[in-house]
């Protein structure tokens, strides 16, 4: 099963408007589906926020993709999973060390307890994050069906 199929199957997705939402609040919201089925604790997201506050918005990649995460086997992480969130409006993460504006409308928030599953997720996410057509389709998705259709329409190359 692909990571996007897994997200749909486990209902680890959310779609929000995002207007005026801080990045801290967005990180919390992106983790809610993971909280809902016990993949992470209610305050797991606070560790992610602390990490981004410490190191800056390095979890925001090209193409407005954010991958908020902490360390493997973090406190409050009970299952390996990915919380996927699409925002209608861009979430502002401030500026990076070069003064470049960082913002995201796609969130892939990670929880990891199982190294093999996590490695598999990360490998697939790397492919997804380099697939601009798929990212555009995911950003336009407002239903779980649209997530699956995006993946079917713009499959990632096999390594």
């Amino acid at each position: 099963m692909s990571v996007l199929q897994d997200i749909v199957e486990k209902k680890h997705y959310s779609f929000i408007d995002g207007e005026g939402v801080t990045w801290q609040e967005a990180v919390r919201l992106s983790a809610l589906p993971l909280v809902a089925d016990g993949s992470v604790s209610e305050d797991y997201y606070k560790q992610i926020i602390a990490c981004i506050e410490k190191y800056g918005p390095y979890v925001v990649f090209d193409h407005n993709v954010a991958m908020p995460h902490t360390t493997e086997n973090a406190k409050g992480a009970f299952k390996t999973g990915v919380g996927f969130m699409v925002c209608e409006h861009m979430i502002d993460f401030g500026e990076d060390e070069d003064g470049e504006k960082k913002e995201a409308n796609l969130f892939f928030t990670l929880s990891s307890t199982n190294p093999d599953e996590h490695m598999n997720n990360i490998g697939q996410l790397s492919q997804i994050f380099m697939n601009d057509d798929l990212l555009d389709a995911l950003a336009a998705a407002r239903t779980p069906e649209a997530i699956l259709k995006a993946e079917a329409d713009f499959p990632c190359e096999e390594d």
Binding site: V59, H69, T71, M119, I122, G123, L125
Partner: peptide
């Protein structure tokens, strides 16, 4: 990377 769990794995790949 910060935690050795996310972007460093992507880099390794």
């Amino acid at each position: 990377c910060a935690n050795g769990a996310g972007s460093s794995l992507m880099m390794e790949n």
